[in-house]
Nucleic acid binder design. Structure first.
Length: 552
RNA sequence: GCGCCCGUAGCUCAAUUGGAUAGAGCGUUUGCUUGCGGAGCAAAAGGUCGGGGGUUCGAAUCCCUCCGGGCGCACCA
């Protein structure tokens, strides 16, 4: 498919150049040309405000500039007409014949590759997300990062990047010791011993299950094992659980990166030494500090505690240097709002070490609130409340979890409506979109029974305005992908899919393919059209990591 | 107190990052349809874009200020 906004931008560049050569326009600096979809149908299929932006530097009135450009736009197969409107907008209309023919393009690209755009040009990209330490089951708080990260990775792949999905974790340190001691206590309790879970340890039921499993397998033979043993057992069981939960959402990783390896290969200490050598670290109050203020940040940070241990920020810096050294052209970090203050320090640290942090892009998302029947459900550990992602999936299903979380811009403080997510009606956008795919599949089941096929269909027979409008909407897919990838905002595709479904269902109701009054040739053409629609819905659902059912 | 994010229709949210008359769904109201490709179709009402000021051809979007909410502000990760 064609990236239409870019095709129009190219046309405009050529138009401006031609207008200059002919003397219709003076010389001036050309800004970046933006082409967008106007909100009203009488304003064309695509439009640009470029003439207004040029008005100052070209020292002319925007309508005259627009007129001059419009007259010099070269012809193109997809272009029907050009018009100057309003204060100086240039509006474009797509050629109907070309639009009809795109049905074939869509079908030939197929549901796995449709709409691919080559923005990445084969560059290496990494998306790091979830990255929860193995101290307990994944909570709903991580849902957003999991879905956003995975979908963004899908979209980057569609945009021509070679993508790696990475999970960063730490299985060392005080929290993990507490975890080990907590499990040890649960195990000893099963033996009837008088053991207590540490006050600041982990009190969740999941450690009881793990302890019970250990007891079932080993009886009381582990009574003399130390906390390290239990830590390893807890970690293994919890990680298995986390992977299982994420797999239910269709989320998988290529690399699990252990923070500990940054100590093993000494890169944390090397980074600290390097900061000192470069004059960005100093000793004070018994600790070592990083001069974050030199990089415009509000205050300096401790990087080595008075106990001699590095703080968490140091391995984070070393980790990002490690990522840069691995040669990624684009490094995406997906963080929750609780990290919004720490990442600038990490980026400053990377810069202080002499690396260019510009490939690193940080996406911060706000938190999710679960809402049921107008009431907020608190995410406490109290019995009967949702806390884990597993429970949320049990409750509403993986597709609904993915769609609901995806259908919000990252910066919104989203509310997850459990009641709506459970509904199996068109009120629920998940079913509304999937139902579009189901209905397309249904048409082909029906066609098969009647012995009708779309072989040799002539798409030029498609003339219903609703059909043509829907095809034009389908043609936006590459632009939606490009826009989402450039801004690292996966939510646009969720809204696009819903918009498309809203156009689809009325068309499906009104524009019948297999009705007895529809001439056979037109039946073929319409079947072809519905095949294209099915392809687009399958592609969108696939990018969002959702299933594309044939039945519901 | 300081920093980051948010505030758009009754509710949940968009708005291609400074463009044309701010858009959807749900809910409400009104018709149609409910004999066949399950959960349908059409229309209407609903807005001081939190308040105020500024920047310019043009602001929901940028700047200042006030109000309200979220998250952070550790020698915890």
């Amino acid at each position: 498919m064609e990236l239409l906004s870019e095709s129009f931008a190219t046309l405009l560049k050529q138009g401006i150049e031609a207008a200059r050569k002919s003397g219709a326009l003076p010389e001036f600096e050309t800004p970046e040309i933006t082409v967008s979809k106007p909100s009203r149908p009488n304003q064309g299929d695509y439009a640009t405000p470029i003439a207004m932006q040029l008005a100052k530097s070209a020292k002319a009135n925007p309508r005259q500039i627009a007129q001059a450009i419009a007259e010099h736009i070269p012809p193109a197969p997809f272009l029907d007409k050009v018009e100057v409107a309003g204060p100086g907008f240039i509006n474009f209309w797509l050629a109907p014949r070309w639009v009809q023919e795109q049905v074939e393009t869509i079908i030939s690209e197929g549901p796995d590759h449709l709409g691919e755009v080559d923005i990445g040009r084969g560059q290496k990209a990494q998306v790091e997300f979830v990255s929860a330490n193995p101290t307990g089951p994944i909570t709903v708080g991580r849902t957003r990062g999991a879905v956003m990260g995975d979908t963004l990775a899908n979209m980057l792949e569609a945009a021509g990047y070679r993508v790696e999905r990475e999970y960063y974790f730490n299985n060392a340190g005080r929290q993990m010791e507490l975890l080990g001691r907590s499990l040890q206590a649960r195990y000893l309790q099963l033996l009837g011993r008088d053991a207590l879970v540490p006050e600041d340890g982990y009190h969740g039921d999941y450690l009881r299950w793990i302890a019970a499993a250990l007891y079932a397998e080993h009886g009381d033979s582990l009574a003399d094992r130390d906390w390290m043993y239990f830590k390893e057992k807890a970690e293994a069981a919890i990680f298995a659980n986390i992977r299982h939960t994420l797999a239910r959402l269709g989320v998988y990783f290529d690399v699990y990166f252990n923070e500990k390896s940054l100590y093993d290969d000494n890169s944390v200490w090397e980074a600290i030494e390097e900061l000192k050598k470069r004059g960005y670290a100093y000793e004070a109050e018994g600790a070592t500090w990083f001069k974050a203020t030199e990089f415009g940040l509000p205050k300096d940070r401790v990087i080595v505690k008075s106990t001699g241990e590095p703080t968490y920020i140091m391995p984070d810096i070393a980790y990002h240097v490690n990522k840069l050294k691995r040669g990624f052209d684009l490094i995406v970090d997906i963080f929750g709002a609780d990290h919004q203050d720490s990442y600038p320090n990490v980026l400053a640290g990377v810069r202080a070490l002499g690396y260019d942090p510009s490939p690193i892009k940080v996406v911060i998302h706000q938190f999710v609130t679960l809402v049921e029947g107008g009431e907020t459900r608190r995410m406490s550990t109290r019995k009967g409340e949702f806390v884990t992602l597993d429970e949320l999936i049990d409750e509403v299903g993986a597709d609904a979890v993915r769609y609901f979380v995806l259908a919000r811009s990252p910066e919104s403080h989203m509310e997850f409506d459990l009641e709506l997510a459970r509904k199996q009606t068109n009120e629920n956008p998940v079913y509304y979109i999937q139902n579009a795919h189901v209905r397309c599949a249904g048409i082909f089941r029906q066609a098969k029974e009647r012995g009708v096929t779309d072989d040799g269909a002539d798409v030029h027979l498609l003339s219903d305005p609703r059909e043509l409008a829907l095809i034009r909407k389908m043609l936006e897919l590459p632009d939606v992908l490009a826009h989402s990838v450039r801004r690292l905002e996966p939510h646009h595709i969720a809204f696009y899919a819903l918009d498309l479904a809203r156009m689809f269902h009325p068309t499906y109701e009104e524009v019948r393919a297999l009705h007895s009054e529809v001439p056979p040739e037109l039946q073929k053409a319409r079947l072809r059209f519905y095949r294209a629609a099915k392809t687009v819905f399958a592609r969108l659902l696939g990018l969002m990591g959702m299933s594309a059912p044939d039945f519901m």
